[in-house]
Write a protein that binds this DNA or RNA. Structure first.
Lengths: 320, 320
DNA sequence: CTGTTAGCGCATTCAT
DNA sequence: ATGAATGCGCTAACAG
C-alpha cells in the first residue's frame, strides 16, 4: 500500500486519520487513489494494539429473545454505532456464571467498555471491569453492592400512574403480579405497589418471568375462582402470559379483568386484547447509558415511563 | 508479568497455550502463580495481530427485536460461543446500505467469519467478504446471485404440511398472507402454496412483515366481509397481527378463521389464541450455519419444520 | 528445557 | 511536508 502510492507508511496514516500532521493535496490524492485501487482498509487490530483502544464495547443481555431486553439491546447497539463503536454481544441467560465468563472474555478482547443489561444481580461485574480499567454501566438492573453508573426508568413512578389509572376505571382492589422473589427492578415495583395500596385487601401474586408460567398461573387462578378484577403485572412477558391464559377460559379482558403492564415493549401494542402499559423510553435509556459510558459522566435522573392506554385496562382501543 | 515470574515472555506464552514447547512443572507453577497474583490475561488483540485470526465472528441480523431473528441470533451466538468465538452484532434494519456498511466495519475489525441473517437481498455481501478472504454464510435468506453457503428450512415442506392440516380440518379454500413483494424465503413459500392450491378460488393476500400492518389488513378485510375461512401466514409476525386485528371485531379464531403460521417462533405458543405453526428447528439451523462457517464445509440439506398443533387451526389447545 | 529476538500493521517521534 | 525508526503484546523460530 505505502509503496503502491510511493509514500511512507506514516503519510498513509496521516491521510487515513486526517492528522495529526498535514499532507500535501497532491500526495493525499495519490494515497487515496492507491487505497481505492487496492481496496485498502486500515487494520483495526493493529490500530487497537497501538492505540490501546479497540472501538468495541461489550453488551451483556440477560436473554436476547425477550422483547424487553431485545429492544433495549437494539437501541444500545444503535447508540454505540452512532459513536462509531462496534458491539460484542453475549447472552447471560440469567446465569451468574455465564455472566462472569462473558465479562472475562470481553475484557480479554480489550473492550473499551461494558454495558450490562442483566436480570440477575449475582456478581458485581463492575469489580472485574474496574480492576481492568474498563468503564461499565448497568442498565435496568443494578446489583446490590455496585457503585457503577446505572440507568433505569423510575419504577415507582410507573407503578403510581398504573394504579391511578386503574382507580379511574373504578377499581379499588388492585392485585400485583411480581416475580418469584424480590430482586432488582421488580422489587422496586413491588414495594411501590405495596406502599400505595397498603397491605389491606391487596393481593400479591408471584410467578416466573415467562409467558408460560404466567399463563399457567392465570388458568389456575381462574379455575379456583380467585382471579382479581384488576391486575398490574411487573413485566410484559407476564402480561402476555396472562392474556394467553385468560383466552379460552371465557374470562374476558378487560371486562372481568383489567390489566396494565409495566415494561411497555413495542410488542404490547399487538396482543389480543392490546395491552395498556407504562412505556419506558428505551431509546432514551440506551442513549443515556452509552453517553455515560463513553463520556465517563454520571447518568442523569431516572427517566419516567409514560402511560399508553389501550384496551386491556378498559379504555377504548386507539392502536389502529 | 514475565519479570514477576522471573521467566521470559516466551515461557509465559507456552504456559498459557499449553505449547507448542514443554515447560518444566516448577516453572509452570511459578508462571501460573504470578498470573493469578496479577490477574494477568493474555491480550487477545496482540495475539490477533500476530496470529491473523481474532476469534470474532460478525453476525448481521435484519432486525434483532423480531422474535424470529432474535431467536435465531441467540442460537447462533450460543453455537459460536461453544466454538470459543465472540460475536460482533449489527442490525441491518432491512437496509442494504446499512448492511454493506456493517460488513465493511466487521471486515476492518478482522472478523474470522460472517453470518448473515438478513431479509433484504440487495447486495451480495459475500463478494466483499470473499475479496477479503473471510468466509461467510447466509441463514434464512439467500441473495439472488450468491454461491455462498446457505442454511434454511425447507420452505416448501412447511407449506405442504400446513395445507394438509387445514384440509384435514375441512378447509377447501385456503388463503395465503405473503409479504409486500415476492422475495427470499417468503417467495418460496408463496410459490409452494400457489403450486399446491392452484390459482382457482385461492386468495393471495399481501402486507408488510409487521404486526401493525397485518392487524390493519385483518380489520379491513373483516369490515369488507372479505375474510377467508382459512389462512396461512408467511411469518409469525403477521400471524400475531391477524390475531390482534381479529380480536375485538367479533371474529373468532379458529371458529370463523383458522390460522397457521410458518415460522414457529417460541412466542407463538403464548398468543391468544395459541398459534398453530410449522416450527423451524432454529437451533439446528444455527448449528449447521456455524459448523459450515468454521469448518468451511457445505451445509447439509435444508431441515424440515415440524407441525405444532395448537388452538388457532381448530385443534384442541395442548400447550398447557 | 528456557532465554533472546523478529515481526504482525499501525501511529507516532525524530530526523530531514 | 515527508521518510525512517520505534514499540504496542504476543507467538514462533532460533540459540543456547
Amino acid at each position: 500500500m505505502a509503496r503502491e502510492a510511493r509514500v511512507s507508511t506514516a503519510v498513509v496514516s496521516y491521510v487515513m486519520n486526517d492528522g495529526p500532521r498535514p499532507v500535501a493535496p497532491a500526495t493525499r490524492e495519490r494515497v487515496l487513489a492507491a487505497a481505492a485501487a487496492l481496496g485498502y482498509q486500515p487494520n483495526r487490530i493493529a490500530r487497537a494494539l497501538r492505540a490501546r483502544t479497540t472501538g468495541v464495547v461489550g453488551l451483556i443481555l440477560a436473554e436476547a429473545p425477550n422483547p424487553y431486553f431485545s429492544a433495549l439491546g437494539r437501541h444500545i447497539e444503535q447508540a454505540l454505532s452512532r459513536r462509531e463503536k462496534l458491539t460484542l454481544i453475549g447472552n447471560a441467560g440469567f446465569s451468574a456464571d455465564r455472566q462472569e465468563s462473558l465479562v472475562d472474555r470481553f475484557l480479554a478482547a480489550q473492550v473499551d467498555g461494558l454495558v450490562i443489561v442483566s436480570a440477575d444481580g449475582g456478581t458485581d461485574v463492575a469489580a472485574a471491569a474496574e480492576a481492568a480499567g474498563v468503564p461499565a454501566v448497568y442498565v435496568h438492573h443494578q446489583p446490590a453492592a455496585a457503585n457503577t453508573p446505572f440507568v433505569a426508568a423510575d419504577n415507582r413512578a410507573s407503578v403510581e400512574v398504573a394504579i391511578a389509572h386503574l382507580r379511574q376505571h373504578g377499581h379499588d382492589h388492585i392485585a400485583f403480579l411480581a416475580g418469584p422473589d424480590d430482586r432488582g427492578p421488580v422489587r422496586q415495583r413491588t414495594e411501590a405497589w405495596q406502599g400505595i395500596v397498603g397491605s389491606t385487601e391487596s393481593r400479591l401474586l408471584r410467578c416466573e418471568y415467562t409467558r408460560a408460567a404466567a399463563a399457567r398461573m392465570t388458568r389456575d387462578l381462574i379455575a379456583g375462582g380467585a382471579m382479581p378484577a384488576a391486575l398490574i403485572t411487573a413485566t410484559d412477558e407476564q402480561a402476555v402470559g396472562v392474556l394467553a391464559g385468560a383466552w379460552g377460559t371465557g374470562l374476558s379482558i378487560p371486562e372481568q379483568l383489567a390489566v396494565i403492564s409495566l415494561d411497555g415493549t413495542p410488542d404490547s401494542a399487538h396482543t389480543a386484547p392490546s395491552l395498556t402499559v407504562t412505556q419506558q423510553p428505551l431509546q432514551a435509556m440506551a442513549q443515556q447509558a452509552v453517553d455515560s459510558l463513553l463520556d465517563a459522566a454520571a447518568p442523569g435522573e431516572p427517566v419516567r415511563a409514560t402511560l399508553v392506554t389501550r384496551r386491556s385496562c378498559g379504555c377504548a382501543d386507539t392502536t389502529y
